[in-house]
């Protein structure tokens, strides 16, 4: 039975607090590079900004994918009073944005707000960002049109959970880092820290084309269905790593999901099933690459995805690390 093990969560703190909206993943890539360079054969950054880390082996090629980017906003206009207007980068609901703090790469902090009597619909035009600038000129000294910001959210932890911004999908990066540093595998491992997942799984698409793996495994996050009103036994926090069955971008081959569950059961790793009908992942474009790449996925349950206050369970992180390790050190799904 896998327990709560102690990991170096200060590394996760660093990863989550790094600035990395889609297309601007460099800070995250640097942290990853620093932490894997002594354990791997090669580290390459490709044109899309994917960081591809290879741990060589003689057997089949396995591509392990987690994305570095997080949702954010991009400044579209600065008005003469020094307020900023924006568009979203990735899936953010306007109604959830009121009173959110955002932070730019230069450390400038802003508050998203609306006029008191304004009702918010699907268009973000009625929301503005207040960075405390007195006028247009003062604002433009700190922020330019085209600059991106992310929702801020400090890293907090207790014995059972972690709360932070950007756990989607720095938790995947953290799991991959742990595995890179500890695993001995016969397989040729390509860890892809992908760019631009939140805007349409773009980095993973080109990486999959370049690597042409025999098997791809995605590590991402999924909805936890254990909020007060939704008490069903679907996916809940600290109940194990979720094995992907279906999302909007993939129906996982039954052979692959059953293989994953079998390995999990054999090693007593707690697991649940991810079945969602909204939201795609890197697994979508990857499994449709060339003649089709066999693809499966692991997902860490998260409450309040994309909110800046994402919560994950430590037992699920442990299970994720254990299951990924088990999957890439035993026989593959087609060999059983």
């Amino acid at each position: 039975m896998s327990m709560n093990r102690d990991f170096d969560y200060s590394l996760l703190a660093k990863l989550t607090q790094a600035f990395g909206p889609s297309g601007n993943e460099q800070q995250v890539a640097e942290i990853i590079t620093d932490n894997v360079k002594d354990y791997v054969e090669s580290i390459v950054t490709d044109t899309m900004g994917n960081l591809i880390v290879r741990k060589k082996g003689n057997e089949q090629k396995i591509m392990i994918v987690c994305h570095m980017d997080e949702v954010g906003i991009i400044v579209t206009h600065i008005n003469k009073n020094g307020f900023l207007y924006y568009a979203t980068v990735g899936g953010l609901k306007n109604t959830d944005m009121i009173s959110k703090r955002v932070i730019f790469s230069n450390g400038t902090v802003g508050i998203i707000h609306k006029e008191k009597d304004e009702t918010i619909d699907k268009k973000p035009e009625k929301l503005y960002i207040d960075i405390g600038a007195a006028n247009e000129q003062e604002a433009k000294e700190l922020v330019r049109v085209g600059d991106m910001a992310v929702i801020s959210g400090d890293f907090l932890e207790n014995d059972s959970v972690i709360i932070s911004k950007a756990l989607d999908d720095r938790i995947g990066c953290f799991i991959a880092l742990e595995v890179i540093r500890t695993v001995t595998s016969p397989y040729d491992l390509y860890f892809v820290f992908s760019a631009q997942e939140e805007v349409g799984a773009r980095g993973a698409k080109t990486a999959a084309y370049a690597i042409e793996a025999d098997l791809a495994i995605i590590i991402d996050t999924t909805f936890s269905y254990d909020t007060p009103k939704v008490q069903n036994n679907r996916v809940s926090l600290n109940n194990g790593v979720a094995i992907k069955v279906m999302d909007k971008s993939i129906v996982v081959s039954p052979a692959i999901k059953n293989w994953m569950a079998k390995i999990a059961a054999a090693s007593d790793i707690p697991h649940q099933w991810e079945i969602i009908t909204a939201g795609g992942t890197d697994s979508g474009p990857i499994h449709l690459t060339k003649g089709g790449i066999p693809t499966g996925g692991l997902a860490i349950p998260v409450r309040y995805l994309h909110s800046g206050n994402e919560i994950v369970g430590k037992k699920d992180i442990t299970a994720g690390i254990d299951l990924l390790t088990a999957l890439i050190t035993t026989h593959l799904y087609f060999e059983s």
Partner: peptide, 13 residues
Amino acid sequence: EVGLRGAQTSTEK
């Protein structure tokens, strides 16, 4: 029915 997926890979092949 879920996004023309088999046609995509089989045509590529």
